[in-house]
């Protein structure tokens, strides 16, 4: 009669975890920080047969910089079990990818950030989280491992819908890779309620090698990016006020926003135009201040 208590699978090595993941497949829900899964279980929205926790796998919590990307630019490797707080406070990240540190510092509250992990927030694919839009704009990728091997998936390809990723049932997200060579990067979080709330509209704007990438989060089921609109900034030294306004308005027109407690679709469309424009203005200021090549972004 009683609902069985989910099996608690707590591997201590990645190898063991991959084996369990392959064996249980969708029967087991993977738990990283537990801030999302815990809420789903408490609210009765999730009744898994098994919980596969990665908490005891020490080898999945790390932050490393490697000079190994194809372009010869540095690459930040983030172990999937790295907490938001660890990323936010890492001098390595603060120095090399300051926008990452400052964005993760905007997530929820310190209590949540001490628990929530970088791998977890991407694997949840929750439309209202902060990090996906930024990592998308930064051109980040994730490493998906299975007993058969591993593949690299861009964040753009990873998040396919509402709480939906392209991870296969035998795969674990083990690492996040963020390339360097950033000339400027901005993340704007527009909240319509408490400072600890999720964004109503989130805008990440990044310029790398002269190319602009604007990603809008929290407004649709997955991060919204329109390369053809961003291409308007192609070949420009900076982003002037007129161009910023135009890109903002085009983004607002291109996105089909959703409605939720943080704002209606109609309102979100208004705010997207404003916040994209402001993000580009901020980005322009940053580029000017650093003379086109950021000192702070390695």
């Amino acid at each position: 009669m009683a609902r069985p208590i989910p099996a608690w699978l707590a591997p201590t090595s990645l190898e063991e975890a991959l084996e369990l993941r392959a064996r249980y497949g969708e029967e087991a829900t993977v738990v990283a920080g537990g801030t999302f899964v815990g809420i789903l279980i408490n609210q009765g929205l999730l009744q898994p047969a098994a919980l596969l926790t990665l908490r005891q796998i020490a080898e999945l919590a790390y932050l490393r910089v490697e000079d190994a990307s194809a372009s010869g630019k540095p690459l930040l490797r983030i172990g999937a079990m790295t907490t938001h707080r660890a990323l936010e406070r890492s001098p390595l990240v603060q120095r090399g990818w300051p926008v990452l540190a400052s964005t993760f510092a905007l997530v929820a509250s310190p209590r949540v950030r001490n628990q929530a992990t970088v791998g977890g927030v991407l694997a949840d694919a929750d439309y209202a989280s902060d990090p996906p839009a930024l990592l998308h704009a930064l051109g980040a990728s994730v490493v998906a491992r299975s007993p058969q091997g591993q593949r690299l998936i861009s964040v753009e390809e990873l998040i396919v819908g509402h709480y939906e990723t392209s991870l296969r049932p035998d795969e674990l997200l083990t690492e996040i890779q963020v390339p360097g060579g950033i000339e400027g990067a901005v993340y704007r979080k527009f909240r319509s309620r408490s400072s600890e709330d999720r964004p109503c509209v989130a805008v990440a704007a990044v310029r790398r090698e002269g190319r602009l990438r604007v990603t809008v989060g929290a407004v649709a089921e997955r991060p919204q990016y329109f390369p053809e609109i961003c291409a308007l900034a192609e070949g420009q030294a900076g982003i002037d006020a007129e161009l910023a306004r135009e890109i903002g308005e085009r983004y607002a027109a291109a996105i089909e926003p959703l409605s939720d407690a943080r704002g209606s679709a109609h309102y979100r469309r208004r705010v997207i135009a404003v916040e994209v424009r402001r993000a580009l203005e901020d980005l322009h200021q940053q580029i000017i201040a650093t003379g086109g090549g950021s000192q702070r972004h390695v």
Binding site: R193, S194, S195, A261
Partner: peptide
């Protein structure tokens, strides 16, 4: 539709 402290906001210190 918001019977939890994620969907129902109360003031936080930063507010």
């Amino acid at each position: 539709t918001n019977a939890n402290l994620s969907d129902y906001n109360i003031p936080a210190a930063d507010d």
